[in-house]
Design a protein around this nucleic acid. Structure first.
Length: 550
RNA sequence: GCCCCCGUAGCACAAUGGAUAGUGCGCCGGACUUCUAAGCCGUUGAUGUAGGUUCGAUUCCUACCGGAGGCACCA
């Protein structure tokens, strides 16, 4: 419908003598203004030297003729907007279409045939997954689904640091506590905190940890490597449990132990080609010549840094996961580093560099101060989920439903805003189960399904409908457009906000209209069903669970 | 010092350059003989400052103020 309107406007403008004017067709903020609006008259008025209101009036009357029965009215408003109110049959048609499409309602094709490689979550083995990783995991999974929904194939991977100083600290910590066989991820996390403190407080410990770090890279100390393998296994198993809870499933896991070797080699090759240079015994990329930071890729001790490993990873992914676009999600604090890696990649392998995009996300900040695993005041992902689940079980006896509500609440908190922004997280008040929240969406869906389950008659979109479409219907129409916009702009929050508005409209409809046994019962049931389909499809994209009852 | 991000009501967040700047929490006030009150209806309240571009700026540009992050051997 939007395209039809757009074309009609373009033609009308050409007739008026303004063929290359760019204009918008958008949803008015207020439904009272209609279903679509355009600024075409405002945009064209200047080049035509016309009064925008007059021009709008002229265009409107022309468009009224062209669009005919599809529109209820075409009116001008304000400084020269043209508002389109769609006719009743258009909405009836959409309600029918939703019933036919079912799970496919809202799916797009803009990215058909594209392969996306998306990397997210990326917790480091030997540390516990904290709420920061939760943010990356939730945003990454939902962004993946948003892109899949527009027709692309998405291959998900997570990349973890299983070598490097933090591992040396954890292993040193385990050894110093005399632990040969760690029991769980928590024990390893504590050992890391212990080793990390020792590293800063004791020269001897620092020396030992540096030595361990090298030994892990070399990998010849059998006993050490056994502890390392065991530790990595325990950590990654804990991650997998969380991923199952969060409904995210990776196709690949990459580890720094695999990227370190290739990374070193690639950077050394680059050094020979003059892309990198030596400085104070280290191999660096001189980013300053292009306004970036100058960063070390290979340390003076010969170990690769994060940057070199990232280069190795880029090539490894290219080999195993052929793709058209590669997204790497990390916290925003890495933007400076990533810009340097990308610049280096663009010199080493222009095609790989060009299609690699860093998608930064904000931090989850605590109102109670900074989180630091060294300080031991991190909130782990598992703890947070457990806390919210406890809160949710006050109203739900069924543990599965309490868990679905908890996951929904946490995900909503993360997905309601633009991914780049920080979330100020107050464990006491941030996780609302009322108002704008995950449970709000879930509850609206549960009530709608409940109505449908109790219905004695069939949902029939072809039965008589009231002359004026419900606001709910007028919002339902927008779903595919919202989903497409979210994919185009990497903006999952657009879907969250839309679903919130839609749920609110359903709640109002539910409160005002008698559905079962009321007027237009068959048609209202069809609208309720269309709402259920839309909410289900939307929540599926967000990866928010849909409880059976609440 | 340099680079990047951010500044919207008491608080947390929205708003492809458009109309009366939306929503939730909180505050205050309503409605249950009716399909689930985690809900509905109403009320209160905001674009850091100063310029610029534009028919039109929360949005783009400049400066300033304030906050967060980054700036060579952690990731």
């Amino acid at each position: 419908m939007e395209d039809t309107i757009r074309e009609a406007i373009a033609k009308a403008l050409t007739q008026a003598g303004a063929s290359d004017v760019s204009f918008a067709v958008e949803w008015p903020a207020d439904l009272a203004h209609g279903d679509y609006a355009t600024n075409a008259a405002l945009a064209a008025a200047k080049s035509l030297g016309r009064n925008p209101k007059e021009l709008a009036e002229e265009l409107a009357s022309h468009l009224r003729d062209v669009l005919g029965e599809a529109v209820e009215s075409v009116k001008t408003a304000g400084p020269g907007f043209i508002n389109f109110t769609l006719a009743r049959p258009v909405f009836t048609g959409i309600v029918k279409e939703i019933a036919v499409l079912g799970a496919d309602w809202g799916r797009g094709s803009a990215k058909e045939g594209k392969r996306y490689s998306i990397e997210y979550s990326c917790p480091n083995p030997f540390k516990e997954m904290h709420i920061g990783h939760l943010m990356s995991t939730v945003i990454g999974e939902t962004l993946s689904r948003v892109i899949e929904n527009s027709g692309a194939t998405v291959i998900r991977d997570s990349y973890g640091g299983d070598v490097g100083p933090h591992v040396a600290k954890a292993l040193w910590g385990l050894r110093s506590k005399g632990i040969v066989e760690p029991n769980d991820a928590k024990e390893i996390g504590e050992a890391y905190a212990h080793g990390s403190r020792a590293y800063e407080e004791s020269e001897d410990a620092k020396k030992e940890i540096d030595e361990l770090n090298r030994a892990i890279y070399i990998g010849e100390d059998g006993e050490l490597m056994n502890l390392w393998r065991r530790g990595r296994e325990i950590s990654t198993e804990a991650f997998r449990n969380l991923y199952a809870l969060l409904d995210t499933h990776f196709d690949y896991f990459f580890f720094e132990s695999e990227t370190a070797g290739p990374g070193l080699e690639l950077v050394r090759d680059g050094l020979a080609k003059g892309i990198f240079k030596e400085s104070e015994g280290a191999v660096i990329y001189d980013g300053e010549r292009s306004g970036l930071h100058t960063l070390v890729f290979i340390t003076s001790k010969g170990t690769p840094t994060y940057e070199a490993k990232e280069v190795g990873l880029a090539f490894l992914v290219e080999e195993r996961v052929p793709n058209d676009v590669r997204y790497i999600l990390t916290a925003a604090e890495q933007v400076g580093h990533f810009a340097v890696v990308k610049a280096a990649l663009e010199e080493l392998a222009p095609l790989v560099g060009a299609k690699t995009t860093h998608v930064p996300h904000g931090f989850l900040r605590l109102t109670s101060g900074k989180m630091s695993s060294r300080e031991g005041n991190v909130i782990t992902a598992a703890e947070l989920i457990e806390d919210v689940r406890t809160k949710a079980s006050e109203k739900n006896d069924d543990p599965l439903i309490a868990q679905q509500v908890a996951i929904g609440a946490i995900k909503y908190m993360i997905l309601r805003q633009a991914p780049g922004g920080d979330i100020i997280f107050d464990p006491e008040t941030s996780l609302s189960l009322d108002g704008d929240s995950g449970p709000y969406l879930q509850y609206a869906l549960v009530r709608a399904r409940s109505v449908l389950a109790q219905a004695q008659v069939e949902a029939k979109p072809e039965e008589a409908a009231p002359a004026t479409p419900y606001k709910l219907e007028r919002l339902l129409v927008r779903f595919p457009g919202v989903a497409a916009e979210a994919a185009r702009e990497n903006a999952p929050q657009k879907i969250t906000q839309y679903l919130t508005q839609l749920a609110g409209e359903w709640n109002s409809f539910y409160a005002q209209e008698r559905i079962l046994g009321g007027d237009y019962e068959n048609y209202k049931l069809a609208v309720a069903k269309a709402f259920v389909t839309t909410m289900e499809n939307g929540l599926r994209i967000l990866a928010i669970p849909t409880p059976e009852r609440m």
